[in-house]
Amino acid sequence: MSGILASMIDGLLVGSVYGLAAMGLSLIWGVMNVINLTHGAMIALGMFGMYLLFGLVTTNAYLLLLPVIAAGLVLGIVVYWMAVHWVIGRSELMSLLSTFAVNMMVIGIGTTLFSTSPYNVNFSLPGITIGAYTFTGNHIAAAVSAVVIALALQLFLYRTRPGKAIRAVADNREAAELMGISSTAVLTIAFGIGIALATASGALVSTMFPFTILSGGAYELKSFVVTVLAGLGKPAGALLAGVLLGLLEGALTPFIAVSWIPLIEFGLFVVVLVALPHGIFGRATA
């Protein structure tokens, strides 16, 4: 197996986590047309959440995902009522600014509590070795967890009543209200789920790489790239697009310095936005 292939396979694994993060962003964007600029901060909180829980209960870190997701849901509901509910009908600028304001506050408090030192979660699963290359157990477990959570989300959206209500509101809020769906309840839950996905992906990242309170930013950029690649408001495509981004990174990292990656990702972001406004999976509608 060549080095590039190994790198790409690892990229595929890490990419599933990118996809999970992007699903959170895409869901919120699709349901309420809000670009959640707290996304990066929430990912960071997920990282620290896992760190703190693991400090308390030394068990398989991947089991601790459940409380992190629950906490993320509650946190999302709080943020929704703090900053999002009041700006829903207004211009996009307002929701951009209000969510960014919350982002600043969270990062500010986080920096005070945790400073900008690196942390990590000391939990490792045994890896899988093929030939000369070893695939980190944590990366594999993270990828599997991401896929499981993504599947759970799909089941929720398509097989349960609340899930259908969310899709209805995403499609046409007024019509959904006329059908008796409380859009406020739906928006609250959808936002909560979006944040839960962000914290979950942060928790997974914390088991893979060292992190600081500021690490969320890089993942937020990746989430934006993945979301526009998949097409806005299509969480299902986000997982696949995340994997693609991971593959791309895996293919590039053996050749170029890490600091060029954000540049390339940004370039991709702008190109896709300008040339393919519906993403690589989307279709132009009349």
């Binding site: 009041w86 304001a101 500010g108 005070t112």
Partner: peptide, 20 residues
Amino acid sequence: SSFHLVIAGGLLLLVVLFAP
């Protein structure tokens, strides 16, 4: 000093919500 981000964020939020 590290609170300056928090206060800036809080100010921004207040302005957006109540006095755009």
